[in-house]
Design a protein around this nucleic acid. Structure first.
Length: 462
RNA sequence: UCCCUUGUAGCUCAGUUGGCAGAGCAACGGACUGUUAAUCCGUGUGUCGGUGGUUCGAGCCCACCCGGGGGAGCCA
């Protein structure tokens, strides 16, 4: 019976005749004329130790040539392990080689490689401990996302990847076109976009929020979960050109409800990963970021600190920290300021809310003070902003006015304004960057190492 | 886009004042009665990121270009 290595490593498997299939991580030849082969199949972090006896028919001809990365199908009996380091092992009765990985050509060696080097081998890096563990945690976070929202009565809505709104205010967009780039149709010195595929300019989405609002204002509570694209020329360890975003949007929710949901959602994901990815989290704790599990556990046990922008500015102006950028009411908080708040002042997740209207988007609800909007950011140590959201402006006149002040044309958003024109309701939502959540839970410092095939300025390989 | 930093063997790196290109690991060959990144002995390894320049002579100095990393801005 073919079983996973995860199953084969359980003590309950002892005594069982079984077959495992996977890839060789290492082979050690013993003085006794037999070999230890460690096999991994991705089902868990740990390997299964195979004892390949010298009297197996293909021992000399094949087994002693088995190199790192080779694929094997192995049949035998699961036994309690004599040695330290594992509770079970398999005494092989047959070792069948599916494919050899030439030791002289296979890039991955039986040692640690730098993450920078592994990025050049993005097609092979999932075969390493770290990237296998990242993949499993990322999978679990995705699964937990669906579970959390589905259990809470949310509807999963698929918003478009291609959009024609060219000014959603969330950064530079990638253009989508079928026009011949070397022979553009010109009219009066300008490109005639009416000849393009959709009869107008189109782009890759930077957010599904506006479309999400249309469904929230019909179906109540919805969420989107899909790829998002930003053509920003940013070179940092926290930005990607293509990333995955989860955006819940809730009718009849106000800012406080939005914050409560964000906190429950983050805690749900953390609890789920700590529960179901214990072995992988143990690896991140030992090899990637000591203290990460205790920090996550603390998040579960502590209510999120909520600070208004005004309170945050007060804390920053009164503290002894020397900042490169001076703090005063009205400025957009710099990375150093956010880092101080979340890493030194609060030492955990913090929700900042009610930002000055001048530094936030047009769709965020204007507060009664006329100076701030009902925006919120969730900041976490190490990563910074992991969630950005707001209560949306539901009053037609206020929204229209704020659009004009932002230099946007109301007619471009006729359908968005219709939501306020017909049966408007208070509503709110937020966006969570999946990769930043993976970074936060694993302690991986570079965002390019928590997505299988990272896209960043000047980098679109594989 | 800006600032800093870096590019030398398959990998990680050293390379002095400009004077014959180095080490560890991996690989390969051998030894070894249960190993855990096994150990021990032996062997081989180069477009010094690219182009141009200075020089008797450049891995090293100069100019430009390309790639990697860190930070800023922008954001998730």
């Amino acid at each position: 019976m073919w079983i996973s290595i995860k199953q084969a490593r359980q003590p309950e498997a002892i005594g069982q005749q079984a077959q495992v299939r996977g890839w060789v991580r290492t082979r050690r030849d013993s003085k006794g004329g037999f070999s230890f082969i460690e096999v991994n199949d991705g089902s868990c972090l740990g390997n299964l130790q195979i004892i390949a006896d010298g009297n197996l028919a293909n021992y000399q001809s094949e087994i002693t040539t088995l190199s790192v990365g080779s694929s094997v199908v192995i049949t035998g009996e699961i036994k309690a392990s004599v040695g330290q380091g594992q509770s079970t092992e398999m005494a092989a009765s047959e070792v069948r080689i599916t494919g050899i990985a030439s030791a002289t050509d296979y890039p991955l060696q039986k040692k640690q490689h730098t993450f920078e080097k592994l990025r050049e081998w993005a097609h092979l890096r999932p075969r390493t401990n770290t990237f296998g563990a990242v993949a499993r945690v990322r999978n679990r976070l995705s699964f937990a996302t669906h579970q959390f929202f589905q259990n809470d009565g949310f509807l999963y809505v698929h918003t478009p990847i291609i959009t024609a709104s060219d000014c959603e205010g969330a950064g530079q967009m990638f253009r989508v076109t079928t026009l011949p780039i070397d022979k553009l149709p010109m009219v009066n010195g300008k490109v005639d976009m009416s000849q393009d595929f959709f009869g107008k300019a189109s782009y890759l989405t930077v957010s599904g929020q506006l479309e999400g609002e249309t469904y929230a204002t019909a179906l109540g509570k919805i969420y989107t979960f899909g790829p998002t694209f930003r053509a920003e020329n940013s070179h940092t360890s926290r930005h990607l050109s293509e990333f995955w975003m989860i955006e819940p949007e809730m009718a009849f929710f106000e800012l406080a409800d939005n914050m409560t949901l964000a906190e429950r959602y983050l805690k749900y994901m953390i609890h789920d990963v700590l529960t179901h990815c214990a072995e992988d989290m143990d690896f991140f704790e030992k090899r990637i970021q000591p203290g990460v599990t205790a920090a996550l556990q603390l998040v579960l046990d502590t209510p999120f600190t909520r600070l208004s922008y005004t309170e945050a500015v007060e804390i920053l102006t009164k503290c002894d920290e020397k900042f490169e950028y001076p703090v005063s009411w009205g400025i957009d908080l710099q990375a150093e300021h956010e880092r101080y708040i979340t890493e030194k002042h609060v030492r955990g997740p913090v929700i900042l809310y009610n930002y000055p209207k001048e530094i936030k988007s047009f769709y965020m609800r204007l507060n009664d003070d006329d100076r701030t909007v009902a925006a919120m950011d969730v900041l976490v140590p190490g990563v910074g902003e992991i969630i950005g959201g707001s209560q949306r402006e539901e009053r037609l006149d206020v929204l229209t006015e704020r659009m004009l002040a932002s230099g946007l044309k109301a007619e471009d958003y006729w359908w968005y304004l219709d939501l306020r024109r017909f049966g408007t309701v208070p509503h709110a939502g937020f966006g969570l960057g999946l990769e930043r959540m993976v970074q936060y839970t694993t302690g991986m410092t570079n965002i390019r190492d928590v997505i299988p095939f990272p896209r960043a300025p000047g980098s679109c390989d594989f």
